[in-house]
Amino acid sequence: MKNRNSNQEYWRANLKIVSVLLLVWFVVSFGFGILWSETLDQIQIGGFKLGFWFAQQGSIYVFVILIFIYVFLMNRLDKKYFESNDRD
């Protein structure tokens, strides 16, 4: 039964990580790149209007970073719930 509980805890922690990261994913691409991009265009960085930059460059960089944050957090979570159990 203990095993089953820790599985559920692990799954809930997993869902929390995934939802936070997907929220960022949504805000950056659909938010900055599409819905609010014309407002962001007021800000100019170098030759880029900011909304345009998010749509054609920035969102892609954020996607890459999000996956690596996910990898890091999940590896830590796996260690906490599974590898330590193995040693017990």
């Binding site: 995934v18 691409s29 790149g33 599409i34 749509a55 892609i60 996910y70």
Partner: peptide, 20 residues
């Protein structure tokens, strides 16, 4: 700028793939 849909669309799917 309309071409942005391909740039975001064809990369953002990998976040879904990795996480889900």
């Amino acid at each position: 700028r309309d071409g942005s849909v391909y740039l975001m669309g064809w990369t953002g799917g990998y976040v879904l793939l990795a996480l889900l």
